[in-house]
């Protein structure tokens, strides 16, 4: 479980970083999205992985240990929403930059690909 998830986080991060270093704005935005997946999974996994644990309290509150760790979940939940907002902002910035400079290079000038 952990090994698979760790590898997955690594692959997501690697793909994201590779795209981050590309010259085209669209590549960078996709890269950032992939990196945000990796980071969200990473934060989520910090509390340890649990399958089949209760995410919601039962009325007869029994042992605390039977529940999942709610804290990383709360952190990641807002991170997902904020991630959407920043993606939107970056998308609009790149569209504006494309309109102003006439190309979609991150440096605003189409020197090299």
């Amino acid at each position: 479980m952990e090994l698979v998830l760790a590898a997955a986080i690594g692959i997501l991060a690697a793909s994201g970083v590779w795209l981050l270093l590309r010259p085209r704005t669209f590549q960078v935005i996709i890269g950032l999205t992939l990196i945000s997946y990796a980071v969200n999974l990473f934060i989520f996994s910090i509390g340890g992985l649990r399958t089949g644990a209760d995410p919601v309290l039962r009325d007869a509150a029994g042992d605390i240990a039977q529940y999942t760790d709610p804290l990383p979940q709360a952190l990641v939940l807002t991170a997902i929403v904020i991630g959407f907002a920043t993606t939107a902002l970056f998308l609009v910035v790149l569209l504006t930059s494309r309109g102003l400079t006439g190309n979609d290079h991150v440096d605003g000038e189409d020197g090299s690909a």
Binding site: L5, I9, S15
Partner: peptide, 16 residues
């Protein structure tokens, strides 16, 4: 990118 990926993966694994 590969180095970053490896680093992040091992960090995540260690943390988990």
């Amino acid at each position: 990118a590969t180095a970053v990926g490896l680093g992040v993966a091992s960090l995540a694994y260690a943390a988990m």
